[in-house]
Nucleic acid binder design. Sequence first.
DNA 1: ACCCAGGGTCATA
DNA 2: TATGACCATGGG
Length: 233
Amino acid sequence: MRTRVFREVYDTLLEEYGPQHWWPARTRFEVVVGAVLTQNTNWKNVERAIANLRKRGCLTPEGILRCSDLPELIRPSGYYNIKAERLRSLCKVIISYGGLRRLFSLSSEEIRKILLSVKGVGEETADSILLYAAGRPVFVVDAYTRRVFSRMGVISPDLRYEEIQQVVMESIPRDLKIYNEYHALLVRLGKEACKKKNPMCNKCPINTLCSYAAEMGEKVSGGHTNIRGCRHQ
DNA sequence: ACCCAGGGTCATA
DNA sequence: TATGACCATGGG
């Protein structure tokens, strides 16, 4: 069953990389900001942007709105104009609900709906905020999740976001700690795979997982059978 | 010089 | 519904 595969992938990644200690932030609001800034962007660049905001004392909803040169401060994180607009919209909504504490006192469904109503906050960003800022047991789906799980043969690659989320969440325990760690591990997997020495080459999930897939009888395009070798390219 | 990164929106068919 | 263009910086 899927449950077993999800479990094996989790165990494999945890053993390989260890706990990831997510989300790397000092406050919940910093998680919110990071969730927006990291959209299609390397985390390293996000850290620079957040450092700029911190230096200015702008890491509060009011601070963001007060800041006159927001685009300039978050410039390192890319898409700085549109992200500045997204941050402002999000902060206005947060303030309109009486701050993060008030907003997060609502049900997960309500919070999600509110977050999604903000232009620039999509499903993954909303769920990241729910999981890592509000501490709700929600599984965050990203490109790695889709790629790895579909390659493991437990989902179809063309499922929608919420369909994947549903499959995963009904297959593994509804546990905050596990959801937290699982997503972080998948992202870590992506980072490792993107290193030139150990390329995923857009086709290979991870060597150990390829090995696992092979053991489970999955036909991996390119035929990986060993731990260290990636035969793509 | 090219490709990618912890996405999302909008216009078009 | 489903593609494609667009947003933009920094590192490999």
